[in-house]
Design a protein around this nucleic acid. Structure first.
Lengths: 220, 220
DNA sequence: GTCTATATGTAGATAGAC
DNA sequence: GTCTATCTACATATAGAC
């Protein structure tokens, strides 16, 4: 799958400010449309209309549909990783953290970013798409696996004796649960009508922390 | 989204045996192709080629793409629910079961069906697609929610004092983790290279059971 | 860099012979 | 019921004027 923008190879000069704004508008629109309709369900035309740009402009700045998708995923990945790693450092500052604090360091930054910012909620849907679709495995490996390794390593240190496979499995389960809450809180509402959603994040963290501890000793 | 087959309204007579076989071949092919490429990524032509049928035949038996998808989801839903409810009855036979037994009754039947049967593994991908995409909410509500209600009710009985919202949230987290393992065990392999996958199901059940108990008291 | 126009392929659906 | 041929729409992508 081609994901490199053509201009990466032969960029002649720095783009103008207006060009950068256009590029941002295109990426913002792509983020919304990919989040709403998935990769195959989205069309360049949808994105162009959403951005208020002509179709050709989306191609020019995006470098093709797959490359455009890859760019939207990459754009916020570093900020997300940085926030998570900073939270982990904070948790580690006073000696070995508890499992719950490590899980919180991974999850809370994403929810804080998503709270009140539609763009990060849309981005969460992109992350869920990438995680669920083997076609984007390379993208996931590039942008998400390094941080995952750090957290898995930290969790392994806190659950001595647990095989790495058990910790990795628990981490994958936890990420799935996190993405479910980030992208479809409505599903919980359907099964528990009328209740408020305050506290779901705390429930998620408690769920995953307890699960990681219990899973570390199971299945061997 | 239209999901009713035209012949539902004016079926003149029972279909011949050959027609039924054709219909089954079409549904089998649709299941494979939808599982591999998603709803938007799949095409009627892919399905026709996979089934060894002409394109028109797929339209005739499927009643359109959306209806065909709905049929593939519906086809195995009752068998899955029945297996789960039977397992729950077995667990309940000797007094109140433990949370872990209830989680196992929900999850084990699906893994047992998927083990060694590619069609059920493909079906798991369809279930994951339906769960993640709001567009299929009605389909999920029709085929999966009733069983979910039964299990949530049982779990609520076993965690007295927990608000229903907490139990429902835990159930959604557990289902997400289950679908992650059913549909992309390879993701665990990436993060824990070389290790075998024996025991992941036990880890999943331990993870979710502990998470449900811990989540029941959190977030309030 | 931007935008119009267009090239080329393929999608879902259907009509009508057999 | 089956299968061929076709309709209509829209997809991605690009060429080239400005």
């Amino acid at each position: 799958m081609v994901t490199g923008h053509p201009s990466d190879r032969a960029r002649k000069r720095a783009p103008s400010r207006r060009a950068l704004e256009t590029r941002d508008r295109v990426l913002d629109a792509a983020e919304r449309v990919f989040a709403a309709r998935g990769f195959d369900g989205a069309t360049i035309r949808d994105i162009a209309a959403e951005a208020g740009e002509p179709v050709g402009s989306v191609h020019h700045h995006g470098g093709g549909k797959a490359c455009l998708f890859a760019q939207t995923v990459a754009r916020r990945a570093e900020a997300l990783s940085a926030a998570r790693l900073a939270a982990l450092e904070t948790a580690r500052a006073e000696g070995p953290p508890r499992v719950e604090a490590v899980v919180g360091a991974f999850m809370r930054p994403f929810f804080e970013l998503a709270e009140g910012d539609r763009r990060w909620r849309d981005y969460a849907r992109l992350v869920a798409l990438v995680s669920a679709d083997a076609r984007w495995r390379d993208l996931a490996a590039e942008w998400f696996d390094p941080t995952a390794e750090v957290f898995i390593g930290e969790l392994a240190r806190l659950t001595p004796g647990a095989p790495r496979r058990a910790v990795a499995a628990g981490f994958v389960f936890a990420v799935s649960a996190m993405l479910a809450l980030l992208t479809s809180a409505g599903r919980i509402e359907t099964l528990a009508p009328g209740a408020a959603d305050e506290g779901d994040l705390e429930r998620l963290i408690a769920f995953c922390a307890a699960g990681l501890v219990a899973g570390a000793g199971a299945g061997d």
